[in-house]
């Protein structure tokens, strides 16, 4: 029972990340009709927002290690610590959550530049061309990050107060030994909040209503005198922020490296396809579903029956769902069918 409970949590946590990336992908696809292969790179850029912010906060005074003469070795002391003592230390400790404030405008700007500077020129091109150009863009972004930060993962720890585990089992009447990392629980709550926020924005605001109408019939909304293109550009920026925040909050779990976006991209596309192209609800449902299935397939008891199932489960389920429901779980008729 304990094991099943923990695997459900693992699945929800993983699923949260998949759902957030897939949500961004679906927003872009649903509004602009673009299959954006650079979306994984946005996840990676979000994680690197936390790295950059951490580096800014830890700009240091170098104290030279005199015992080493062959090269310059330093023990760094951040200026924030020198100037503000314990308060400075606390600010550095909280660099990941604080970097959200830094990441929102940065990711929004990146999204807008990406859309206005490159992607809008490919709206009327074929999906194959869109895939090629966005995939190329992803590689360019990766290489830029690699040249700036190196290929090695960079540790971005969670604040000390939430770096350990919560005795969550007690709350559910399970054993004391059932623990789960605080940060993963925070990530799960965070992904839930962001998903709810995006849905509320689309369903409860006039802007959201116009966007949804545009997703249904772009031409008609345009004929009503609304500048849909401008609104869709903002949606691209919003998708970049959502995906970037997903990456940023994931950085204490997975120390960021330049390739992390690609690792998530393929899975996220599977999530979008399983959920149904263009369906926001489908993307979220499929994200959590596939996350949970992947976790259960990794259990020793399951692998003892079907060895290697943990590595293929997502693709296997995708095949089955597409055979039964070719448009995905919540897919709409007419999307990607022309």
């Amino acid at each position: 029972m304990d094991a099943i409970f923990l695997q459900i949590l693992n699945g929800l946590d993983k699923g949260g990340a998949y759902a957030l990336i897939a949500l961004g992908l679906t927003l872009v696809f649903g509004t602009l009709g673009v299959v954006n292969f650079a979306h994984g790179a946005l996840f990676m850029l979000g994680a690197f927002c936390s790295v950059t912010f951490q580096k800014l906060l830890t700009i240091s005074k170098h104290v030279k290690d005199e015992s080493i003469t062959f090269f310059d070795a330093f023990k760094d002391q951040p200026y924030l610590e020198i100037w503000f003592g314990d308060f400075g230390k606390t600010i550095i400790d909280y660099s990941v959550p604080l970097s959200i404030l830094f990441a929102i405008p940065v990711m929004l700007l990146i999204g807008l530049i990406m859309e206005r500077g490159l992607i809008r020129h490919f709206y009327k091109r074929t999906h194959a061309e869109q895939i090629l150009v966005t995939f190329g863009l992803a590689i360019v972004l990766q290489e830029i990050v690699k040249s700036m930060f190196g290929a090695n993962p960079i540790p971005t720890p969670a604040p000390d107060i939430v770096s350990g585990s919560a005795h969550i089992g007690v709350l559910f009447g399970l054993g004391e030994s059932v623990v789960y990392p605080w940060w993963r629980l925070i990530y799960l709550a965070f992904s839930g909040l962001v998903i709810a926020g995006v849905f509320a924005f689309l369903n409860l605001t006039t802007f959201g209503m116009v966007v949804r109408a545009g997703m249904m019939d772009r031409e008609m909304v345009g004929m009503l005198g609304i500048d849909v293109e401008k609104k869709f550009t903002i949606i691209f920026g919003l998708a970049a922020v959502v995906t970037g925040l997903a990456g940023l909050m994931y950085s204490p779990i997975l120390p960021p490296d330049y390739h992390m976006g690609m690792d998530f991209l393929v899975l996220s596309f599977v999530v979008v396809v399983v959920g149904g192209m263009g369906s926001l609800g489908g993307a979220v449902t499929a994200g959590f579903l596939l996350g949970i299935l992947q976790s259960f397939a990794s259990m020793n008891e399951v692998k003892a029956i079907i060895p290697g199932i943990d590595q293929i489960i997502i693709y296997l389920v995708a095949v089955v769902i597409l055979l039964v429901r070719p448009r995905g779980l919540l897919g709409r008729e007419g999307v990607m069918e022309d």
């Binding site: 094991a3 059932v178 997975l254 992390m260 976790s295 259990m299």
Partner: peptide
């Protein structure tokens, strides 16, 4: 107690770590 093989580049190892707890 157990030897568990993990795929290269798994990224998130949580599903392999939780069984260790008990």
């Amino acid at each position: 107690v157990k030897t568990v093989r993990t795929p290269v580049g798994a990224g998130d190892f949580s599903q392999y770590i939780t069984p260790i707890l008990n």
